[in-house]
Structures are given as C-alpha cells and as structure tokens.
Write a protein that binds this DNA or RNA. Structure first.
Lengths: 114, 114
DNA sequence: CAGATCATTCTATCATGCTCGAAATATCGA
DNA sequence: TCGATATTTCGAGCATGATAGAATGATCTG
C-alpha cells in the first residue's frame, strides 16, 4: 500500500526538475500548452538521443509533472498543470504558515503580466 | 567570469530542495522567520550528525536559498526569501509566457489563507 | 593560555543518477 | 505479412551525490 506523503512527492518533483535537460523540456511543454509536443520532436529540440529523452520524460511523468498520450505511432507529452500546482502549493504552504507578510509579498510579485 | 544564467541557478536551487533532509530544513527555516535557527539545533531537529547537516546547509546556501550569520560561537541560518522568490518567479515565468489562463488559475489557488 | 563548545572541512565509502547504443515493443502502410 | 517509423526498455560504463567519523578552525570562559 502506497501512502501519500506530500513531502516525498515534492522531493520527487523537485528532483525531476533539477536537471538542465528536464527543466528545459518542462518549460517547453508549459509553453506548448494543452496540445503538447511529440516525443521525437522534444528529443530533437533538446539535442539528445531518443533513448535518453525517453528516460527523462519518464522521470517527469512519474513525478506527476507531465502526462503522455499515444496517438497512433506518436506519443504526445504535455505539462501536468495540476502536478505543478501541487508542488507550488506545497512550497508556498510553508511560507503561509510561517511568515504570512513575506508570503504575501512574495505572491504579489508573481503576477502574470500577460 | 561567472555568468548569470537563470536556468542554471534554478537547477541548482531545485537540486538543493530535492532532498528530504534539505527540504525539511528549508521549510523549518521558512517557518522560523527572520530570526532563523542555530546550526546545531537544526541538525538535532533533523536527527543527522553535525557534519552531514553542515554539508546540506552549505548546498542550500550556495543555491541562494538560505543565509548564515555568525553570532559568537553560534551560526544562525535563515531562509533567503529573495532566492525563493527568484526560483518561483522563474518557474511561473514559463507559465505566464505560455498559457496565461492556466497561469492565472494556478496563481489564484495559491492565496495565503493567513 | 587551557579547556570546552560549536561548527566546518577533510576523507573515504557507499549509493544513486546520467548517458546512450542495442534490442525490444507498438503501430502504420503497402 | 513485411518493412519502416516512433518510442521505450535494457544494460553497461561513467560521474555525481550522500553519509558520517576524524581532524581542524573559531570563539568563549575561567
């Protein structure tokens, strides 16, 4: 039986993002939106072999940061916004429970200017 | 000459937080506020030897997530809110430049309830 | 200055993670 | 069914990270 430990999930997600190639891929997918990108195109864009990229995408997926869906021979990867939200919420939670003033200030600077 | 690469800094910060002990310590320091905590107390609270904790604190400090200040024999560690803000801003930036609707929704759920 | 306290740095061992070619799997078109 | 395409899984070699005892550095007190 696999328990739900928010901190363990957060460590896994942070570890998934703590890699140059994987962080680039995640950002790429966030920008790509709901349509996502095809595995091969991601590997090509990041300039790494398909097998290496597959490994990285697996790590991001297991961490709950991306989702994949097969469409015939192609596999679409897209960012998992809910996973991202969980991670950010976990990090902010400490802030809110600790020093709300600083937390508020921090959130205030994070506005979308789009 | 050491260049400033936001992505490299982000990877370093994410890597620093991607460890159970270090994430616990960082949360602890965020909750502790500006006064921070003493190195020895942190090691004791996390139940790890001082040398191991010193190693972890060094990683967090080099990543720009905590600051240290000596006060006689004791060394105070406190969370670096500016470093945390930079990391979160970097992660949100992708979101904002990509799909602003999702970004806004995501930020909306991150309100301090304190 | 000597001894005690607090913390870091050193060093060695052990564990985990990254990379990528080769082989395997899945799907399509002829 | 056969060959081509897209992707993953496997396996091995290499690199990096974690851990903690011992030694070192910094500071206070008597």
């Amino acid at each position: 039986m696999k328990e739900f430990n928010p901190q363990v999930s957060a460590v896994e997600a942070l570890g998934a993002l703590a890699h140059d190639t994987r962080l680039s891929v995640f950002r790429m997918l966030v920008k790509a939106g709901p349509e996502g990108l095809i595995a091969g195109a991601i590997a090509q864009a990041a300039n790494v072999p398909p097998s290496t990229m597959s490994h990285h995408l697996g790590i991001l997926e297991r961490a709950g940061l991306v989702e994949s869906e097969r469409e015939s021979r192609l596999i679409h990867y897209r960012a998992d916004y809910e996973g991202m939200r969980r991670l950010l919420a976990f990090l902010m939670q400490d802030c809110c429970q600790g020093v709300p003033e600083m937390c508020a200030e921090l959130l205030g600077e994070l506005n979308c200017n789009a």
